[in-house]
Nucleic acid binder design. Sequence first.
RNA 1: GGACGGGUGGGUGAGUGGCUAAAACCAGCAGACUGUAAAUCUGCCGCUCCUUGCGGGCUACGAAGGUUCGAAUCCUUCCCCGUCCA
Length: 420
Amino acid sequence: MTQGAKQKVEMAEHKFKPVEEQLAYIKKGVAEIIPEPELVAKLEASRKSGKPLRVYLGVDPTAPDLHLGHTVVLRKLKHFQDLGHTAVFLIGDFSAMIGDPTGASETRPPLTREQVDANAKTYLEQVYKILDREETEVRYNSEWLGKMNAEDVVRLCSHYRLARMLEREDFDSRLEKGQPISVHELLYPLLTARDAVELKSDVELGATEQKFNLLVHREIQREYGLPGQAILTMPILVGLDGQRKMSKSLGNYVGITEAPSEMFGKMMSIPDELMWSYYELLTDRAPNEIASLKKEVSSGKLHPMDAKMRLAEEVISDFRGQEAAHKAAENFQRVFRDRQAPEEAPAVKLPKGPAKKLTALLVDLKLAPSKAEAERLIKQKAVEIDGGTIDDPRKDIDLSKPTNFLLRAGKKKFVRVIVE
RNA sequence: GGACGGGUGGGUGAGUGGCUAAAACCAGCAGACUGUAAAUCUGCCGCUCCUUGCGGGCUACGAAGGUUCGAAUCCUUCCCCGUCCA
């Protein structure tokens, strides 16, 4: 062995942590590794050769904002990045126009090019709150999918069988229930498999509901003469209702661009039991740390509310910084624990003008979606001005002279109204 | 291409001429209780106007027309979905 080659091997040995150590880090919070021995072998090979693994996560930019549910898998990708592997963030700008049928009980309306582009842009900015901007390889699947011609598509499709495709649960159950399935939906897993082929990935990450797609990707990679990627799935993050998966359409989500105090309030509203899975999937606390926290709570040493507040503060500081998170925590204490007015309610300046109906004012300030709803809120004693309940739906608010009051609608919504 | 079944509010789903802004359930919202948790209980849950009344107007049962004093309900055409046959 030459001097140089020897040196190279030594360097390689030091580039990655021992496989066992890596594996322990990788496994935290993971739902399933398919197949685990293969992942271990890949890690070993990479350590030996000094070549990082290519680990990718594909995301369809179907909505402009990320929520905590999305971050679970992103955090796992970040873990690989921390270990020195190559994180590939794939934006499914092409596949988003088909729409992933996963978990869908009906065909999704396809997105337009414009929507997809706009979403992709805001996605990336948010993704960098978790991933290292410099170290992340960002790819768009239109790069290759957009170039495929009919022949390429036919070829690709010939690698998979209909019966296999229909095995997947959402197709099967839709078929069973007599619900429509469009042919283009069958294409989704195949086209995204093309991504795995192009990226020559060693590992692909996804939520458990993506398992079927990821497995197809692995098989197709082999059909194209590549070693099949290992698959790593993460559990679905349960939403605020404690029942269903966190999703925007269900409204049980915490967006990562939301105001810290908003995020805080939402996090606090999760069922107690749920906080442990949030700890596991949304923080970097070690499993044994979480276990001991849990023990403290069940023994009565730690109040569940305090444990939850700690969680909320930790998660929020990941996205908004420690200071903002801490402020949100203080604000929460003040408003809900001590039942005082928030220190900083969003202030709205109104022009001087004639008296206005309270119902109209509530709508103007977006505290109610319609006047009918505003009237209901008032009748239900949900509206307060400077701490005093208003129950007269016909009340007029005098805006003809300078004034300043705190308007509350419901538990969470406050606005400071200022007329100068 | 043919035969049959179907399209109702955010969801499931009742309703076959007026009593239906449309049952019931779920979701959602508000209040009580609390730890803004959960559970529970109570109320609300299309929009709008005012004289806030078991008030008036408007919009709504795939779409457009029609019958009728009156249509989610009947008729015509169209669109969409499913099942079976080819």
